[in-house]
């Protein structure tokens, strides 16, 4: 079973990388970019039947740092 874990900075947490990329996009002449936030995509291949609680536990314990990050678990067919 393929899983994608999307990890993103919580709203309100400063994202220096996103800010730098935002400036770079403006420097390239792309207008109308309001904001850029950079996150992380983690792809897992787990045993079929791995339950949602176990996946959430992986995110809480390691994949995301919940002080600063949110995560979203996506199951890929």
């Amino acid at each position: 079973m393929k899983i994608r874990v999307h990890v993103s900075l919580k709203p309100g947490v400063l994202d220096p990388q996103g800010r730098a990329v935002h400036h770079a996009l403006e420097g390239l002449g792309f207008a109308g970019v309001e904001d850029v936030r950079i996150g992380r995509l983690i792809e897992l291949d787990v045993a079929d039947g791995t339950d949602d609680a176990a996946l959430a536990d992986m995110c809480e314990k390691l994949l995301a740092h919940t002080v600063i990050e949110n995560y979203r678990i996506e199951k890929v067919d």
Binding site: L14, P16, A20, V67, I68
Partner: peptide
Amino acid sequence: LTEAGLLPGALMRNASQ
């Protein structure tokens, strides 16, 4: 220590990059 939960908070990329 912050990642292990022994201290609160987190250390992020320097604001200056």
